[in-house]
């Protein structure tokens, strides 16, 4: 019995779960107490999942864990859907997931005749145009895609910010003089909300409404994060690695390449990961108010013209982007640092 999960307790919890939801539905308690209803449901489900987990043979335990992590968000969506269908939440402002999915599908498939854009654009025509060496067509096709606009800003901004960030961070980590000179200034700029300096960026660039200022704010946000993390990464290298490197004859660039760079990489990548998330947050915020393309623009646009399903669909795209970008960086990390424990 110990550690095996009590089957009686399990059936009791399941019964409680059914009773609780049944009673709430029967006595129309959901409208007033939906948060309490969901809270208790959550606790009961945790209990049931825990008990089932104890009874699962070890062989299937990993599979069970994975299914838990997948089914939890699905359950959340189900609860949302039911709350809306049951009239607890307003479908106008909290459209059920099914309608959000439908709106997402519409965003993907429906080409907006007016602005000549859609969420993804028409990437399938892209390959043909590139193959046929028609750069004008490629440009037009790319301009159609809100996703491309956002991704381009994130990637270019990230690259332009991260590269000098890593370089300066390394230099600051190695040289105490440069570090003491720049550190305070850097910390001061680091805390500035980058969206607040957007107007300044607009003044600096010849075309204030072009891609320049948008990419620049992303790059600046990334730059400070990466610089600070890289500096910390270099400074936190085990002194014994540096001693070993020097003792075996490495100095100057070779010490940097063989010891300092790889030694700092884990913290550098931690910084890059935060910076990539920040890049996405910043560009979405900029697109909300200051752009005519991009996923952030799309999201805010559909709120402004009062199409909440599509606004939610836009938010979903942002979340998916966040997950995919982070996963992508993780892959790069594994490729660059094969020595790390997976």
């Amino acid at each position: 019995m110990n550690g095996k999960g009590n089957p009686k307790l399990l059936s009791l919890l399941t019964l409680l779960f059914a009773l609780w939801n049944g009673c709430l539905t029967l006595f129309h308690g959901w409208t007033a107490f939906w948060w309490l209803g969901l809270g208790v449901d959550f606790l009961l489900i945790v209990g049931i999942a825990e008990l089932i987990g104890k009874r699962i043979p070890p062989l299937y335990a990993p599979l069970y864990r994975r299914s838990l992590s997948v089914s939890f968000p699905l359950l959340l969506f189900l609860a949302w859907e039911l709350l809306v269908r049951g009239g607890v939440l307003s479908p106008d402002w909290f459209p059920p997931p099914s309608r959000i999915v439908q709106a997402l599908w519409e965003l993907i498939t429906k080409f907006d005749e007016f602005s000549k854009t859609s969420l993804l654009g028409r990437p399938w025509l892209l390959l043909g145009a590139a193959w046929g060496n028609r750069p004008e067509t490629v440009k037009e096709l790319l301009a159609e895609s809100h996703l491309y606009a956002t991704l381009m800003r994130v990637f270019v901004g990230f690259f332009l910010g991260a590269t000098p960030g890593i370089l300066l961070g390394m230099v600051m980590g190695v040289s105490p003089t440069i570090r003491t000179m720049i550190d305070a200034t850097l910390s001061a700029f680091y805390v500035l909300p980058k969206i607040a300096i957007f107007p300044i960026m607009m003044l600096i660039f010849p075309d204030p409404f072009g891609e320049g200022p948008k990419i620049a704010v992303v790059a600046i946000s990334v730059f400070f994060l990466v610089t600070i993390n890289t500096m910390v990464g270099v400074r936190d290298i085990e002194p014994v690695y540096l001693e070993a490197g020097r003792n075996y004859g490495a100095s100057g660039f070779r010490l940097f390449y063989h010891v300092i760079l790889p030694g700092a990489l884990p913290v550098v990548f931690a910084g890059l990961r935060i910076a990539l998330g920040t890049a996405l947050i910043v560009i979405i915020a900029v697109e909300f108010v200051r752009a005519k393309t991009g996923v952030g623009f799309l999201t805010f646009y559909y709120w402004e013209i009062l199409s909440p399903e599509k606004m939610y669909a836009g938010l979903v795209v942002v979340m998916v982007l966040g997950v995919l970008l982070t996963a992508g960086l993780k892959k790069v990390e594994q490729w660059v640092m094969p020595w790390r424990k997976p």
């Binding site: 307003s90 402002w93 013209i305 009062l306 199409s307």
Partner: peptide, 19 residues
Amino acid sequence: TQGKVDVGGIAIVASTWNA
């Protein structure tokens, strides 16, 4: 629409028509 506000002073724009 949520009953939190009775009267609004607003511009008649695309969102109003969509509503």
